[in-house]
Computed example of a mutant assay.
Amino acid sequence: MSTDPSFALQTLIARLEQHLSVVSQSRGSAEASVDAAFGALADAFEDYEDALYDQYSELLPFTIPVDDA
C-alpha cells in the first residue's frame, strides 16, 4: 500500500515547521532535540519522495546528507 503524495507532502511541511521551531529554540546543533527533528524531517522527506515516485515515477532534486562518523 503506497502513501498518498498529498498526505506525505502535508507531513513533510509539518516536519519542516517542527524543525524550524526546534532549531530556533535550541542552543546548538548538538542538542538532542535538533537531532531528533532532523531525523523526523529526513524520514518525512523520504516518505514524500517514495509516494511521489510510486504515484508519478518522479524524484526530487535533493539528497539527505549521510553522517559517516
Rank of each mutant, 00 (worst) to 15 (best):
E58R: 07
Y53W: 13
P61A: 12
V23H: 02
L52P: 04
H19I: 04
A30F: 15
Q25P: 02
E58L: 14
D50Q: 13
S2M: 09
A14W: 10
E46D: 13
S6H: 10
A44H: 04
S6L: 09
A37V: 09
A32K: 03
L60V: 11
A30Y: 14
Y56C: 11
A69H: 08
S21G: 12
A32W: 12
S26C: 09
L20P: 00
T63M: 09
L52Q: 07
L59K: 12
A69W: 12
S24Q: 14
S24H: 13
E46Y: 01
V34K: 05
A30C: 10
T63K: 03
Y56I: 04
Q18W: 11
A44S: 13
E49V: 07
L20D: 15
T63S: 13
A37R: 02
S57R: 13
I13F: 08
T3F: 00
E17H: 09
R15S: 14
A36R: 06
V22G: 04
L59P: 01
P5K: 00
L60T: 11
P61N: 07
I64E: 03
S24T: 11
S29W: 14
D54P: 00
P61R: 01
V66K: 07
S21N: 13
A8R: 01
V23Y: 05
Y53A: 08
D67G: 01
A69P: 02
I64P: 04
E49M: 05
D54C: 03
P65N: 07
S2I: 07
Q55A: 14
S6W: 06
A37C: 08
V23F: 08
A51L: 05
E31C: 05
D43W: 09
F62T: 04
A36D: 15
L52D: 05
Y48K: 03
D43K: 07
F62P: 05
V66C: 03
L52Y: 06
E31I: 03
S33W: 00
L52E: 08
L16R: 08
D54A: 11
M1E: 12
T63R: 09
D50Y: 04
S2F: 10
P61E: 10
Y48R: 03
D50M: 03
S57C: 09
A36S: 12
V23G: 01
V22W: 02
E31V: 04
R27S: 14
Q55K: 07
L60C: 12
P5N: 02
D4Y: 04
M1H: 06
V34F: 09
S29G: 06
A51S: 10
A69C: 02
Y48E: 07
T63V: 14
A8D: 06
A32N: 05
G39F: 08
F38D: 15
T11Q: 15
E46R: 11
A32L: 14
D4C: 03
T11M: 14
L52S: 07
P61S: 10
A40S: 06
R27A: 09
A30Q: 15
E58N: 00
I64Y: 01
A40F: 08
A37W: 02
D35K: 10
S2L: 05
L52N: 05
A40K: 04
